[in-house]
Design a protein around this nucleic acid. Structure first.
Lengths: 339, 339
DNA sequence: TTGAAAGCGCTAACAG
DNA sequence: CTGTTAGCGCTTTCAA
């Protein structure tokens, strides 16, 4: 509750001097500084960041715009792990995070710019928004520095962090091909996800390399949902009994696919190999455990924050970061029995 | 970037009128109001919440002090799900959330009061802090309204939300007793957790009711960790071969216990019944699936926010909320074979 | 090395 | 119904 005014009074100096002393300016007598510091301690002073921000036009605050901070997200933990990464980096560098809820209707009525300008965040990290989200246009047009997770847009004020989804998908499909599979289906996410496009490309690339014809009807969308994964897997396996492997663009859908297989009396991996993408927690607890492509969500968050803060502090450097993936072989894939 | 000053100029009125018009005061001519609103829209005005907060002494911001926002948390998702609940309620009621990182050393040097006073949050929700956390004392002494998750402290400015842990534990142990078990071990969390104390009481209560002697050596601590659950389960099962069931104070530890059993050649549930607490995602994906006590983490978050905001807005009412639990029967528990 | 004064953008008495 | 004035707590010229 004490203000610099109080300190000034108690220390017998002006507010200017207090401000300078506390902020470590050099042009202040060391004795006065010590005295001021002592008084500040005594009065349990803590600066009012609102007032400071108002004049400095910097809040040391990063906005976090997460679309889909929902309970369902605890299945794949994407949001949470990214958040952990952001939080750690921000903490290290002295920034606090402010969470913009985009769930509630109340907040949805505000534009992106309103959200940011009202709270005067220095920059923003956007996560989980779809390619056709109206916020996205605003982001690009606005000049508030921001970093996008998994959407490749780059400009002076916009950067992004993503995983090498194409390479990751290729890794998975290569693995299936190595195991002898020739009829490989794919359950993709949805059209509004950049990562889906990339993962499809990786799938196709692997096929081309192995001289396997791409069959359009082998690829369906499952909206990244476990339930849809199950539905779509059943459809694929019914329509194309020759299929011996399915690559899913998310582990959740892969779990769904395994369920479908089980229900249809197909054993995984003996009759059907299933590979996922993400390497979520559940992947190592399901039975059979799931072969998948690992992507480091914590790191994505951490790098997003680095990128953004570097931008905010005027550090030069690339505005994008593409993280590596790796193949995690588990029980859900094996050599094809049918040859 | 436009301020009320700009609007005032364009509309040919004073800033006061602008302020009043935009804030919906009644004592302003509807025509002037309309005009002002039009100008505001035209200029893409959005209020500077910093300035407003500075004078109003209200920020419409809730601080979130989460200890242990770490990647390991994605195993049980406690933090994330509580956060979702808080976020949803806060969003509905027009509050934004500011995340205080307590991970980094930088931030740890600040006291609780500094954290809150600097950012001028209206209130705070604390989650995941231990009973012996230094922040806790500060909370009680400070007069910043706050709500604690899973720590029962109540005062004019402090409230809490928790689950009925005693009843929940009793439910689990009753279930094991019903199945015929008489030698039931317990792997608890740790001394610094209020919930651990409660769950132990529930365990004891169930034993008393069934006229089973409480054996102190049957109860060990596993720090809520899967790995420790495994270690402690092995110790228990080795030392007390008569044991046919273990109640674990968290699902994670229960998963560890099942691992230990498997490693020791004991089948679950035929040779050993295992019950957990929490009903985390993994509980329904493990094999065997885990019998457990469900607690609604999202609801805990939501209720915390309700409690806090009600306090902030001067609504009278209880400062605590205790949520119900329920038993979720799955595969890991069954009738005892050895009789 | 220090202080006086102005101002960040807003709200809130108090007059008129 | 509207404007004038003051002030929230801080930083920052500009003088001294």
């Amino acid at each position: 509750m004490a203000t610099i005014k109080d300190i000034a009074k108690h220390a017998g100096v002006s507010v200017t001097t207090v401000s300078r002393a506390l902020n470590g300016y050099s042009d202040v007598n060391e004795k006065t500084r010590e005295k001021i510091k002592a008084v500040a301690r005594e009065l349990q002073y803590s600066p009012n960041l609102l007032a400071r921000s108002l004049v400095m036009k910097k809040t040391k605050t990063i906005g976090l715009l997460v679309s889909g901070m929902r309970i369902e997200g605890s299945k794949d933990n994407f949001t949470y792990e990214v958040l952990c990464g952001i939080n750690d980096c921000a903490g290290e560098r002295g920034y606090d995070l402010i969470l913009f809820s985009t769930n509630s209707e109340q907040q949805q009525q505000k534009t992106y710019n309103q959200l940011c300008q009202e709270r005067k965040v220095d920059g923003v990290i956007l996560q989980g928004i779809k390619i056709d989200d109206p916020y996205l246009n605003e982001v690009v047009e606005s000049d508030i520095p921001c970093v996008l997770v998994d959407i490749p847009i780059e400009s002076t004020s916009v950067g992004y962090v993503t995983t090498n989804n194409k390479a990751g998908a290729k890794l998975a499909v290569d693995h299936l091909i190595d195991l002898g599979h020739r009829h490989i289906g794919m359950i993709n996410g949805h059209e509004q996800a950049f990562v889906s496009k990339e993962r499809l490309l990786g799938y196709q690339e692997a096929l081309v390399k192995a001289k396997i014809d791409f069959q359009e009807q082998y690829v369906v969308n499952g909206s990244f949902l476990e339930s849809e994964g199950e539905v779509q897997a059943e459809k694929l396996l019914t329509a194309y009994p020759e299929m011996t492997a399915i690559f899913c663009a998310s582990d959740l859908m892969a779990l769904g696919a395994m369920k479908a297989a089980r229900r249809m009396g197909k054993r995984v991996p003996e009759d059907l190999s299933v590979a996922g993408f993400d390497n979520i927690m559940l992947a190592s607890y399901s039975s059979p455990t799931l072969t998948t492509i690992a992507q480091d969500r914590y790191q994505m968050g951490f790098e997003s924050a680095i990128l953004l803060i570097d931008m905010l502090e005027g550090k030069e450097g690339a505005h994008k970061k593409v993280l590596k993936t790796s193949l995690v072989k588990r029980e859900s894939t094996s050599k094809t029995q049918s040859t």
